[in-house]
Design a protein around this nucleic acid. Structure first.
Lengths: 255, 255
DNA sequence: ATGCATTTGTTCGTATGTATG
DNA sequence: GCATACATACGAACAAATGCA
């Protein structure tokens, strides 16, 4: 019968044994394995996972077990399961590699996506305490504030708030209004190069506005970075915070 | 007249009289009192101050006067005032500085706290796919698995899962059982030094066990790091993941 | 989804004590 | 003594954010 026929097949014994009785549930091991592979780019964003049948064969487990793992990954937003079609890696999982010279547009292009941005606010304000201390200026001093939504192929991936010392960078507000990127605007006011000095990372749940702008559920945390950029002379040119939707975006640090 | 009527009310006389006409402004006296109490741990970090109305009642002054005092404390960073919620004593945030040579105990000591740890699991298992790929060994090879809760002055600050290649580091399991720190255990099996090669950061909400172990609400995200440590020759000696409670812990990158 | 209670934020107006010249 | 300026303190009302039922 059908049963026998299946049994007769050479039983391609799990190429990738999962550990039974290891104290870790099989579906967790599988989810973990797949998570790692997706993070490493296999399959690539937009790509398709093996079918559930293929996966259950590969790991030597029942299809139900694979489904439990996929369910987990799906809830975490790492895969998207479509009935009748298969499971896919969402196109917008992006590793944000933090280095001294990280630039938004370069970061996005490295993922073969088209960077763009939407300016939400651009104005001059008085420095709040946290901003003043980040920029090393006195409280109430003038700062140029830029809030910007970063997009990769039209999908929001970052929501940044940038603060620049207005006194030290005269004409920056106009430059930011006209230049296509922050890097270019800074160049126009004399900052030919700048480096990331320190990045602090935290996480919290988004408020309503953040969730809407970044198109993420309110139940998924944002990664929050706070950073300071300095010019080649070591003078602080920017204090900024940025919010990234997890797990669409992960941050990678390579010393 | 109005004045008299007010005077007539039983006037539950400020339980804690402030000295009028003493030459010291009332708001200063109040700020001083609150500063002392917060310093003494009442309310404790993370705790909530009485409402402005309660404070103005307690000191027998107008709410404006209390607000002036809170403003002062807020400026000094001793309290954090949130509209619609109340005033809080900020929790001491521990910066987790990620560098090539980050060590748990040094990190904690840098914050003038006493590091300790609680081993939750220590055993030898076969490498799951993701671990194997992280360690650069074949799947199913033996790895030493260590799960450990990191504490600073008794407060949980990290929950780490460490994987070591057993073949390359024979005797490690016993060393880990006896040595007080991972660094020391590695030294005993011949790894005199190791460096952090790469760190990936993400965030998600904790499950029930994680929330309990790290003593954090389930509504507050965890920072998740995944990292690889190599010895001086570049051989991988550890693949680990760690979970940190926000906002108690932040991660700092210094390139 | 909606309304309600609680709490902080803001803006009026008023009064008083103190330092200055 | 007097006028002025400033910090301090009180009172009332309303706005805005939050949490909860």
């Amino acid at each position: 019968m059908a049963k026998n026929e299946v049994a007769v097949t050479p039983e391609p014994a799990a190429r990738e044994p999962v550990l039974r009785q290891s104290g870790v549930a099989l579906w967790r091991q599988i989810a973990h394995a797949l998570r790692g592979e997706i993070g490493a780019g296999h399959p690539a964003p937009g790509g398709r996972l093996p079918t559930e049948a293929q996966l259950s064969n590969r790991f030597g487990v029942n299809r139900h077990t694979v489904r439990r793992a996929l369910e987990e990954l799906s809830r975490a937003g790492l895969v998207r399961v479509e009935q009748g079609r298969g499971s896919f890696v969402p196109e917008d999982v992006i590793d944000y590699t933090v280095g001294a010279r990280t630039r938004f547009s370069e970061w996005i292009r490295r993922h073969n996506k088209e960077p763009s941005g939407r300016v939400l606010r651009l104005l001059e304000v008085a420095a709040e305490p946290a901003v003043a201390s980040g920029l090393g200026i006195r409280q109430g001093a003038r700062v140029v504030l830029l809030e910007r939504l970063g997009l990769a192929d039209g999908t929001p991936v970052s929501l940044g708030t940038h603060h620049f010392p207005a006194a030290r960078l005269s004409g920056l507000l106009e430059a930011l209004r006209e230049a296509p990127t922050i890097t270019e605007a800074l160049r126009r006011v004399g900052v030919s190069d700048y480096l990331r000095q320190v990045t602090r990372v935290s996480a919290r749940l988004p408020d309503a506005r953040e969730a809407e702008l970044l198109r993420t559920p309110r139940s998924r945390p944002l990664l929050i970075t706070e950073n300071i950029n300095v010019d080649r002379a070591g003078a602080i040119v920017e204090y900024g915070t940025a919010r990234y939707p997890t797990p669409r975006v992960q941050i990678v640090f390579e010393p």
